[in-house]
Computed example of a mutant assay.
Amino acid sequence: MKILCANWQAADEAELEREHYPDIEFILARSTNEKAATLDPTICGSVDAVINYSPTHIVAAAPTAFPRARIAVRSGVGFDNIDTAGWGARKIPACNVPDYGTTEVADHAIGLMLALTRGTSAYGTELSGNGPEGWHFSKAPLVRRHKGATFGIVGLGRIGLATARRAAAFDMKVVFHDPHLLSGVDLSTGYERVNSLAELMARADVVSVHTPLSEETRKVLGAAAFAAAKPGLVLINTARGPIVDLDALEAAMRKDRVAGAGLDVLPNEPGDLDHPLLAAWRRREPWIANRLIVTPHAAFYSPASMRDLRLKSIEVVHAYLAEGRLNNCVNAEYLK
């Protein structure tokens, strides 16, 4: 069994994978922040499976370049950068790894909320930058009480549900919007379903984004959503950058419609640091000071989650090729 590990990200040479799957031949193709890994056509023609390890780059060859491949996997939860239709046209399953890093992302989402709404980020910044002048509780502009506040979730999947449980532990009222969940989820979870994104925005004090990226969700957090928002909203995005329209977010923050935002993901990574919103944040312009936190697409990360991800990625391939057992297929509509 031969697996192409496209856009390989780890610094090592897949020692973990080779230890657990000694009978598999792993071919590593490394990428950079700027571009996807270049692939040798000869190698493409010889592999039984393709795994894409990059959260941002696609595989630098079309599915047709892999005549022997029988499965493709995105090593991660999001599958917007795997050609589900292209693989499906060849009746080849494309899969993801949805069951790793769930607790890490949920913790990170709550951590971003707390950093903004309890001032833990602002206080440190003010003290390190201004010394004794920064020693005052008023330096954090977004501090508020969590008990009784409303926590809104866009997308109540594994991570959304884990985040909801954490918010509820802070005595927050949890509401969610997810048109793809069957009726009754609100009854089974105890969280309140709302029927539109506009209603969620109007009611929530904090909105946390946990929906996959698709054409339906691209820029769904845009001008219309922010116009409907409850004044003083805090937005958290640990899902996918393009779900939030940065231009609309900047406008909403300048108008104080959105009080603050914690962004672990950006529409383009890491190039969006030059976007006007982020440029203002980097310059610490007064209007945005202590209202925005940006982290480098790191919500998923811990040493334990990376181990899980790496082994589960291979497990999906091995289960299908060795046992005929298909897990986590995301293009089933093309395989019928």
Rank of each mutant, 00 (worst) to 15 (best):
L4A: 05
L4S: 04
A6L: 04
D12A: 09
E15P: 02
L16F: 13
R18F: 04
R18Y: 04
E19T: 15
H20P: 00
P22N: 13
D23A: 15
I27D: 06
A29R: 02
E34N: 04
K35W: 06
T38L: 10
L39F: 05
L39Q: 05
I51T: 09
I51V: 14
S54Y: 10
S54E: 11
H57G: 05
H57S: 05
I58W: 11
V59I: 13
A60G: 10
A60E: 14
A61M: 03
T64W: 05
T64G: 11
A65I: 05
A65Y: 06
A65R: 06
P67C: 03
A69M: 03
A72I: 09
D80I: 11
D80V: 09
N81D: 14
N81C: 12
I82Q: 10
G86P: 02
G86C: 09
W87N: 08
A89C: 08
R90D: 15
I92Q: 11
Y100E: 09
G101A: 15
T102E: 12
A106H: 12
H108A: 15
A109Y: 07
G111N: 15
G111R: 09
L112Y: 14
A115V: 03
R118I: 11
T120K: 08
S121A: 15
G124E: 14
G124Y: 08
L127H: 10
G129F: 10
G131S: 14
G131Q: 15
H136P: 01
K139T: 10
A140R: 00
A140V: 02
P141C: 02
L142W: 07
G148K: 00
F151S: 12
G155Q: 08
R158P: 00
L161G: 01
A162C: 06
A164E: 11
F170G: 02
K173I: 03
V174F: 01
V175I: 15
P179V: 13
L181Y: 11
S183I: 07
D186M: 10
L187F: 08
L187S: 13
T189I: 09
T189F: 13
E192V: 03
R193A: 11
N195P: 00
S196V: 07
E199P: 06
M201L: 05
M201E: 03
A204P: 01
A204R: 01
S208A: 07
V209D: 00
E216W: 02
T217M: 09
A225H: 02
V234K: 02
L235V: 06
R240F: 10
V244I: 03
D245H: 09
A248H: 07
E250M: 10
A251F: 03
M253Y: 04
R254W: 02
A259T: 09
G260E: 08
A261P: 00
G262I: 07
V265R: 06
E269N: 05
P270Q: 03
G271E: 00
D272M: 00
L278Y: 03
A280E: 02
R282Q: 10
L292E: 01
L292T: 01
I293K: 01
V294M: 01
P296W: 00
H297R: 08
A298V: 09
S302W: 06
M306E: 15
D308P: 01
D308T: 12
I314M: 08
I314W: 04
E315N: 07
E315C: 04
V316A: 12
H318I: 06
A319E: 14
Y320K: 13
R325G: 13
R325E: 15
V330W: 09
